[in-house]
Amino acid sequence: MAIGEKPQIFMPPISLKAKAGSASGTLAVNPEALKKAEMAMDGLRREFADWLAEDIAALAKAFVAFTQDLSPENAGALFRAAHDLKGQATTFEYPLIARVAASLAKLMDGMQSWEAAPLPLVAAHIDAIHVIHRDQIKDASNLIALTLAEELEGRVVKTIAQASFKQCAADTRAS
């Protein structure tokens, strides 16, 4: 179809509202549906511990692969494993694992090159996640785990800033 100069605005031809919408068109979630779904989520909670353990094992495996070969593929796999934990660990009742994983994902995402990612700092994140899991620290205000998370976050910020500064300096010299 040729696209004209003028923007076109139109309603999609397929109406889900006609197919599955409520009679009143309310935007509120039906309380009965919400209750059923909450019960389904509660039913899954007994599996959360196994799921989290599997996700942590996947992260550890991705880290080992990355240390053996600093390839973009392995770096990407490590970032995705950290990013998964960042998004899911809170649901699996470990908010501080989510926080440490978020810090690791930020580190992997923030480095100018994969090779520049400092392995000891990456390893420290993974160790912290193992410890929080091993000690079953589910309380987001646990002082020791919180201090550890904050320390790691601070180091990540500093590391990314230093890497960015080095890159700028190199760019300036080259130009």
Binding site: P7, Q8, I9, F10, M11, P12, S15, L16, K17, A20, G21, S22, G25, T26, L27, A28, V29, A33, L34, A37, E38, A40, M41, K86, G87, Q88, A89, T90, T91, A98
Partner: peptide, 23 residues
């Protein structure tokens, strides 16, 4: 993420009951 049941359902309700026009 982290997702909540309410958030999942409210997004579904939104796309069904409140379809946006296309541009």
């Amino acid at each position: 993420k982290p997702v909540s049941v309410k958030a999942i359902l409210s997004r579904l309700v939104n796309v069904v009951e409140h379809p946006r026009p296309f541009i």
